[in-house]
């Protein structure tokens, strides 16, 4: 049952919040609306979205819509944070790194001028400002990677980014990889340090599997699309191993062709049940397994850290759906097409 006493309040709060997430009939209604403004006025009936949209209903661009929808995540984060005990707060603080990494990623792209048209002017969320340790103005003002890194002195991001910057041909990919590695390692260590035994087990399982599968996905993509050298592939692996052993991982990287890699995957006992003979795609495996994992753990241990994790998972899915839905509506897709794009 987990820690019933510790989590009774938080679990109830999250249950209430879950009940406010969008359901299938909501999506159908939304898909039928003719414009972004209609979507917003529908969403405004829901507490969290009412807060983030405020008075803005007319003339909201799709970029702004996306951003505001994302902001609802911070609102929910803040609600959960305020309901949490000390231990959970420590975990949530570490979890917040995810949002900071997202924020930094955007600005790294801007500084490296990879995507010049990125809208980075403002996160528009006082909640983000409140929780974040970053010097946002300094980061926004940065014009080059060196300036950006200088603005991050005294944050955990400084050392890894500095390390990457010594590389003469340091690319966006290098920076993003190092940030991801930092995030996963931090949360992995925090979980070990601050949480109770049950919580630790749960996090080990969810994050362990997540890291394992993400590593596989990255190697798969690197092999399929990017033609990276083996050592480069190995340098971007998150150096924590849960069910897939380090040796297996190295062995998978050293596979010369995709076929060999697929064969290799089949040999992993851990993945045996998920593999279909015809289609071995780590990306789909990742998505399916993660969904199962989040939903099953919270069913098994409703009064544990799993309730927070699963809520964030569901919320993030909802945000992805809404963003897709917004784009579909912009391109005037039919309701059926929209519903196909959305994962419920």
């Amino acid at each position: 049952m987990g820690d019933l006493l510790e989590y009774s309040g938080l679990a109830t709060k999250i249950k209430a919040m879950k009940s406010k997430l969008l359901r299938e009939d909501d999506y159908i209604n939304l898909a039928e609306s003719g414009s972004i403004a209609d979507v917003i006025s529908y969403l405004k009936k829901i507490e969290t979205y009412d807060e983030v949209f405020g008075e803005q209903t007319e003339n909201v661009s799709i970029q702004r819509f996306e951003k505001l929808v994302r902001n609802s995540l911070y609102v929910d984060y803040d609600k959960i944070y305020r309901f949490s005990g000390e231990k959970q707060k420590k975990y949530l603080k570490a979890y917040f790194m995810k949002y900071e990494v997202d924020f930094l990623r955007k600005h790294i792209r801007r500084c490296l001028a990879v995507h010049t048209n990125i809208d980075t002017e403002s996160v528009d969320s006082t909640l983000f400002d409140k929780k974040s340790c970053l010097d946002e103005n300094g980061i926004r003002a940065a014009q080059s990677m060196n300036e950006l890194i200088a603005a991050l002195v005294n944050t955990p991001y400084y050392a890894p980014l500095k390390m990457v910057s010594v590389k003469s041909d340091a690319s966006l990919f290098d920076y993003e990889t190092i940030l991801d590695i930092l995030y996963f390692r931090t949360i992995w260590k925090t979980a070990d340090k601050v949480l109770s035994v049950t919580d630790r087990k749960i996090l080990r399982k969810t994050f362990g599997e997540k890291i394992d599968l993400l590593n596989l996905v990255w190697i798969y993509r690197a092999k399929k699309y990017y033609k990276l050298s083996q050592i480069q592939m190995y340098s971007m692996v998150i150096p924590e191993y849960y069910r897939i052993k380090k040796q297996d991982m190295i062995w998978l990287i050293k596979c010369e062709t995709l076929e060999e890699f697929d064969e290799g995957l089949k040999k992993l006992s851990y993945l045996r049940h998920d593999l279909e003979p015809e289609n071995i795609n780590p990306e789909t495996i990742y998505e399916e397994r993660m969904e199962k994992l989040y939903l099953n753990t919270v069913k098994k241990e409703p009064y544990s850290i799993a309730c927070i994790d699963s809520y964030f998972y569901m919320k993030e899915c909802e945000i992805k759906n809404l963003i897709r839905l917004g784009e579909c509506i912009l391109y005037q897709e039919s309701t059926d097409t929209i519903m196909k794009c959305i994962k419920i």
Partner: peptide, 10 residues
Amino acid sequence: DAIYSSMYFD
């Protein structure tokens, strides 16, 4: 050099 560079050799 490329290999070492990807290992952040400074």
